[in-house]
């Protein structure tokens, strides 16, 4: 049976919750829902999201 994983902020020891976060890169702005610590505001970026960011970056960068 699949287990639901809960991520906990290492610093604050509280569960991360989904929040809308704004990213900015080379004058382009994006929003995306990511897991965030409600106490200190640190966010967790999954590997999947990082791969997406890399794809987005590649469309902006100079040849």
């Amino acid at each position: 049976m699949e287990k639901k994983l809960t991520l906990i902020c290492d610093k604050c020891k509280v569960n991360l919750t989904l929040a809308n976060v704004h990213f900015s890169y080379l004058d382009h702005n994006f929003r995306h829902k990511v897991l965030r610590c409600p106490e200190c505001g640190q966010v967790y970026l999954s590997e999947e999201l990082v791969a997406k960011m890399k794809e987005v970056e590649a469309t902006f960068e100079d040849k």
Partner: peptide, 9 residues
């Protein structure tokens, strides 16, 4: 346009 500005990266 979605490119960066010259020399931005």
């Amino acid at each position: 346009s979605i490119g960066g500005t010259a020399g931005s990266c």
